[in-house]
Design a protein around this nucleic acid. Sequence first.
DNA 1: CGCTATCTTGAGAAAGATCAACTATTGTGG
DNA 2: CCACAATAGTTGATCTTTCTCAAGATAGCG
Lengths: 248, 248
Amino acid sequence: MFASLPASTIIYSPGRHKADQEAMPLSSSGTCIAKSASPIDNGYLRGRLDGVGSSVEVAKGQEIVGQGDRADSCFEVIHGCVRTLQRLEDGRSQVSEFLLPGDIFGLDASGEHEFAAEAVTAATIRRVRLCTIDLLTREDAAFEQDLRHHLCYQIKAARRRLVALGRMTAAEKIAGFLLEMSGRLDASEQGAVKLPMCRGDIADYLGLTIETVSRCMTDLKRRNVISLHGSLIAILDRRLLATKETLH
Amino acid sequence: MFASLPASTIIYSPGRHKADQEAMPLSSSGTCIAKSASPIDNGYLRGRLDGVGSSVEVAKGQEIVGQGDRADSCFEVIHGCVRTLQRLEDGRSQVSEFLLPGDIFGLDASGEHEFAAEAVTAATIRRVRLCTIDLLTREDAAFEQDLRHHLCYQIKAARRRLVALGRMTAAEKIAGFLLEMSGRLDASEQGAVKLPMCRGDIADYLGLTIETVSRCMTDLKRRNVISLHGSLIAILDRRLLATKETLH
DNA sequence: CGCTATCTTGAGAAAGATCAACTATTGTGG
DNA sequence: CCACAATAGTTGATCTTTCTCAAGATAGCG
């Protein structure tokens, strides 16, 4: 996620540490302008679980996995949208990911799930036992490699989100989110996408409040960067959204 | 990371979605109080790379991997402390992890490293080619499994940090950080640990400013929850640190 | 068509950031 | 071993962003 944040914002700059210049060059590129990895490359396991497991229908809002549930299965979203999240006892919650058709979750679990999974919309999901995954991994070298790539991608995606949550402003978070979603969701004729999740989910994904999410979006609309009618959103000026357009 | 945050704060609570109650129970535990996974279980690969690769000495502050470097190697910290981080062009930076002896980084890379790695202190690191890892994975089923567990742990660790960055207050972040570090670093006789990283690194790890880190720590000291003299820190009241002691 | 959810908007409060000294610690050369 | 410079850490005053609380507007659903 957030792979589609402005590539130009990620760049090596001299550290604040004096010792930076010392000793032998271990990194192959000393001072190098880096760009983020390609936006959408988490399809390593796409189609790999076809035919295994059993599919289930879940209603909007229904819990698929509870925090603390025994982790014996992983899931692939066939249709609809799912969120993984952790809830704190005081009501705060943090969404880890939004999962769309083809996305898999719960692969990383061992022991018990630390994050719950809930249906954002009515959804169809395929449940696959982790022992099946184990088996596939042992017997199919190509699957093993794809699985490994998939896990590595999850790590990178989570770390990208760390940067967003730790160091981005509300406006930047929203911009990154809209770019991410417009890349992952199917756009209609007019280039608009229907966000499956509500403002509250977006807020919990970005570490903001509902009100801040709403205000930032309204602001982008006012400046003609996006158009929005409820959950229907179109990006009008991708350039501006992806650039440092320090709103306000 | 943050595995040692108050387990009691992580709990399932009824969602805000009306539809929560609907349909069949897919999750084995409906309403369940979940606790976080065991604090320190990232040792899956500990010792597995002994004998492979070559070790290198790096000076304090030296860059080991640059943002955008070709990802052909991973690294194990033998001695010292390393940080992985991403720098934005405007100077903001986000530390992803602090790595201590036995910890491995760069395993998740493919293509190019999105995060830089820099020595927090003078350090000894072992460099292992990723093709060597590939080879080991293919030839040693036990290694493959350990590697997979390791990657899964990294995912969970990153997601735990997502909760901290997105939904915790400055005081909670600091408390969680101190608990994490006191668990990972060797304590002296008096139970004190010497933090290898400076306040700026801590700030970049937690998404705060240096000043806020300093203030929170001073506050904890004033309330006799910790003792601190520069980078030497001892936890005096672990209970209080791990509980909702909403400072301020 | 009305009810409920969700979303938007405004005003005030608060957490944390910023700017600016000032203090302490560490490391170095005389 | 001390003095000094450099780095790191603390503290205070003020400002900004985001949150909170509250009300009103919209939209979706039965």
